[in-house]
Design a protein around this nucleic acid. Structure first.
Length: 165
DNA sequence: GCCAACGTTGGC
DNA sequence: GCCAACGTTGGC
């Protein structure tokens, strides 16, 4: 089984990596994504066992703060059908769901966090989507090479984390 | 708080 | 289908 890698952005004031680690089974449904490109990854590509870099956006400083794994592949996001939910989408039809979510499980915090300015200095990360000017994609693929560089910077071993390709 | 970059909406 | 207006993201 081959493992792919992803980066998920979250604003820590909304849902932080600490929130994930404090959740039951350290798991959460990654719901509320309302961008079609990100949705396509959630629906079509992200598989159980894939590795995730957890990134804090709108933080000071922005940083990669933890590692997680995928525990359930893409399935319809129920918040899209709930009129009381802030992510409700009246145009989404339960018979043909527009929006999808995956379930993820926190593995380990990255301490100290890998701050954005540090990442920008790392020439081996050139071309990484996160570092592209104007990049706003909240669910984005990470190449195995870039994932490995980040694991090294974090002092982590992806094999020991069960993220074995 | 500012604003560049980007996505979405809606008139035409 | 074009594109101006508008809203959001997210670094700084």
């Amino acid at each position: 089984m081959s493992v792919a890698y992803w980066l998920f952005k979250s604003e820590p004031s909304v849902f932080s990596f600490a929130d994930l680690m404090a959740a039951p089974d350290r798991r959460t449904s990654w719901d509320g994504v309302r961008n079609h490109q990100a949705r396509n990854f959630l629906r079509d590509q992200i598989q159980v066992g894939d590795g995730i870099l957890f990134y804090h956006s709108n933080a000071d400083p922005p940083a990669i703060v933890g590692v997680a794994r995928v525990t359930r592949a893409g399935h319809p996001d129920p918040t899209a059908f709930n009129p009381d939910d802030p992510h409700f989408d009246p145009k989404s039809d339960p018979a043909r769901p527009t929006w999808y979510q995956v379930e993820i499980e926190g593995i380990v915090a990255i301490a100290p966090p890998l701050e954005l300015p540090r990442l920008r200095k790392e020439t081996r990360l050139e071309g990484m989507e996160l570092l592209r000017k104007g990049s706003r994609l909240s669910v984005q693929p990470v190449s195995p090479e870039h994932f490995e560089v980040i694991m090294n910077l974090a002092g982590l071993d992806r094999h020991r984390l069960g993220l074995t390709g």
